[in-house]
Design a binder for these strands. Structure first.
Lengths: 247, 247
DNA sequence: GCAATAGTGTCTATCAGACATTATGTG
DNA sequence: CACATAATGTCTGATAGACACTATTGC
């Protein structure tokens, strides 16, 4: 007990159509602050930790309450605790990062149950337009959230190259083309379809379902699913946090 | 402000002679608890976060106070916050991991200044004898510190393979043989001297000083130092925490 | 057939690991 | 010289990237 406020925040990633090009682009929902400090500025969704709930549960709860999205993946990122990061009383924030599929984004507040979020003050931003260093051009967020977003972006991009994290953006089955497009959107560069196929097939993380997708004006691609016996990501002895463990 | 206690703990690594074989082995200092809960059990050094100090400063301060060592490297590991991880009031622990050189280990409490640590209740343990899963054989620590140690060990071993973290165990100059022995002790396996040399020379992280070590009954090895223009480790946008930044 | 994407094959540069060889100090 | 370790060289198998080629659908 030392009079330090403990909060959680979450950097949420989704692939959404770019407002101009329409191509899928890494996007982050932010919340506009409606009170001091930093009133009017955008910041990460979050809130206080309830003494009875775990940190991950707290992150999952607050992000649903404020943005209406239900993530398919949630992982702790880093704890930010500089004494001056928030005016007034000391606040330490345990920051998580999350992935959501398009179908997990509630564009409207859920009508029946749960607290409705304030849609007026929630908006999606292209990830690459955020996270620029203090003092530079571009949109700047409240608190130290510029640095937080930059770090989360780095972690996602690093991790997509060696883990099966991309499935957080995909449904239960998908084509190799869809999986590749996820990687391309995250890494923001094109990948060779042939080499990508070899790599991901050789990794053993995905399994062909035997089904194909018909209807395209071209050869029907195979459907794949992730091998559920393989871990989603390599987090060492900690393991990953799946939605089931979140609450 | 939510009535949650905020603490820091640190997993400290040093290379020390194995109590039986005498060969350098990864070792961790622990503190014996002198009060409930878990009185008599060993646990990680740590303490409460002072509202005025940063998390890293807090970690650095508490580990010096309790064990007398001054680390050459300190990095945040993970924040552990399960509601039931400590009996009584809720405690969330931000855990750091640290590296120390042999000369930074104060075997006796510093005589002149600072609080003397309780040498009776501090002891070094071979890292591989710790971190075993709950319920299995072996020494078990207070709180959730078994899992904490296991995770820290995983992180150190992962990181030594792609970063220049080994310098945390070495002085300002060293031979390739010494550097290799650090890697071998951390990874607990032998490395081919020739291939190790090529890899580390090719990485560009070390520079030959031009000097040699004489006196051995063999060809005198070159001395190297780390290239100070290269970063110690790749922590993304956060960068590393050097001792200078700790306080 | 043509367009479009799925899927396979092949070549090459690079790199890690195994291991042979040479170099240079001390006793 | 013998010995021990330093330092260099060479071979090989695995792999990533570039890119050519074949397969299969809809129109």
């Amino acid at each position: 007990m030392n009079g330090i406020g403990l909060a959680v925040s979450t950097v949420i990633f989704a692939l959404r159509p770019h407002p101009e090009t329409g191509r899928p682009v890494l996007s982050i929902p932010l919340v506009r602050r409606t009170r001091a400090p930093f009133e009017g500025l955008w910041c990460l969704p979050g809130g206080w930790v309830d003494p009875a709930e775990s940190l991950a549960t707290s992150a999952g709860r607050t992000l649903v309450e404020t943005t209406g999205v239900r993530p398919s993946y949630l992982e702790q990122l880093y704890t930010f605790g500089a004494p001056d990061r928030s005016p007034g009383d000391r606040v330490v924030s345990v920051v998580y990062w999350a992935l959501v599929r398009p179908d997990q984004i509630g564009e409207r507040p859920p009508s029946s149950k749960g607290p409705a979020f304030d849609a007026e003050n929630v908006a999606w931003f292209v990830a690459d337009s955020l996270g620029s260093p203090r003092g530079s051009d571009g949109l700047h967020l409240a608190f130290d959230h510029d640095a937080v977003v930059a770090y989360a972006l780095w972690r996602l991009r690093t991790k997509v190259e060696y883990s099966a994290i991309a499935q957080g953006f995909l449904g239960s089955t998908f084509t190799l083309s869809e999986l590749r497009q996820v990687h391309e959107a995250v890494l923001d560069r094109e990948l060779d379809p042939a080499n990508f196929r070899r790599q991901v097939e050789g990794s053993g993380t995905i399994v062909a379902t035997g089904e194909h997708v018909l209807g395209g004006r071209h050869r029907p691609p195979r459907l794949y699913r992730y091998d559920t016996s393989a871990p989603l990501v390599d987090n060492g002895p900690l393991g990953e946090l799946t939605p089931g463990e979140m609450s």
